[in-house]
């Protein structure tokens, strides 16, 4: 009986705290669930490190808050006017003052080490197997696949009235980005107009898209499924209405999709005859 309690209760708590929805037949659904109190389940190597860092941070911070609360509760009772009519005159205690300077420093160092490790890991693009180009627009995302024939398409928000049953409100787009799992993907981000921000919480990707500049980061998606995110920099009236939806599929499925996509989103290069009026002069 007790044994069941010890397995069921943590499981229930974990469910409340976990992120990903139940794994459907076709894979993970990475978005928030109702009453979710913790991060979305990490689905990339970077996200796993960020997730672990946050667990560490949370425990340290909860401990600090409880510690301060405990002292306050004690003080409020023990040294109330009623219980301690004569106040002391102590205004110094060198040992204490050293301790409450040194111990926080040690705690911060303990945080900084995994924190910086995570930072450098998430930043450094490992040898990438493919590149995805992301462009922010008011108010939709465009995606390009330079390594697969350089085709591009727009991914536009689907308003509530046009949703099909089962499609999540405010997260559905007409054309999701299709990406292969278990692949190091270089992400190149820029904007066509104002600053936007491309963010996928479950992959721990979040980077501004700034006009006139290209930002780079990387990701690697662990499992097939649907990954959702939202624009994360105020960009005008429809800032809340330009979601991101990644459809992660197996490498084989991705290769198949690329063939079809190349045709459907053929780039303009083949349309017109090149007219060369001036040729490059090399010094």
């Amino acid at each position: 009986m007790l044994k069941r309690l010890f397995t069921l209760v943590p499981a229930a708590v974990a469910a409340m705290f976990s992120g990903a929805g139940a794994a459907l037949a076709e894979g993970v659904v990475a978005k928030s669930t109702p009453w979710q109190m913790w991060l979305q389940e990490p689905m990339s190597p970077s996200a796993e490190m960020v997730h672990d860092l946050n667990v560490l941070l949370m425990w340290i911070e909860v401990a600090i808050v409880i510690f301060v609360l405990a002292i306050m509760a004690y003080v409020m009772v023990r040294f109330s006017e009623k219980n301690n009519p004569t106040p002391s005159k102590t205004t110094h205690h060198t040992g204490l003052e050293v301790a409450w300077t040194a111990i926080p420093i040690l705690i911060l160092v303990a945080i900084a080490i995994p924190s910086l490790k995570t930072l450098y890991f998430a930043d450094h693009t490992p040898d990438a197997d493919m590149t995805l180009k992301v462009k922010g627009n008011q108010w939709y995302w465009s995606y390009g696949y330079p390594d697969h024939g350089d085709f591009e398409f727009d991914s536009v928000y689907v308003p509530e009235e046009e949703l099909k049953p089962g499609q999540p409100r405010l997260l559905t787009v007409d054309t999701p980005v299709v990406l292969p799992v278990d692949t190091n993907i270089r992400l190149l981000l820029t904007s066509n107009d104002v600053i936007h921000n491309w963010a996928i919480p479950s992959l721990a990707v979040k980077l501004d898209t700034t006009p006139g500049r290209t930002n780079e980061t990387w990701t690697r998606i662990n499992k097939p499924g649907d990954y959702y995110g939202m624009c994360s920099e105020l960009c005008g009236v429809n800032h809340g209405f330009m979601p991101i939806h990644i459809k992660a599929v197996s490498k084989e499925e991705f290769a198949k999709w690329v063939v079809g996509a190349k045709e459907e989103y053929a780039s303009n290069d083949t349309d017109k005859q090149p007219v060369r009026l001036a040729k490059a002069q090399v010094r």
Partner: peptide
């Protein structure tokens, strides 16, 4: 192991309206 060089073209007012295409 990989560097990306990225350009963005903006529309601008020409300094000289008779300017021809210059690529050198």
């Amino acid at each position: 192991h990989a560097i990306t060089l990225s350009y963005t073209f903006y529309r601008s007012e020409p300094e000289d309206s008779d300017k021809k295409a210059e690529t050198a």
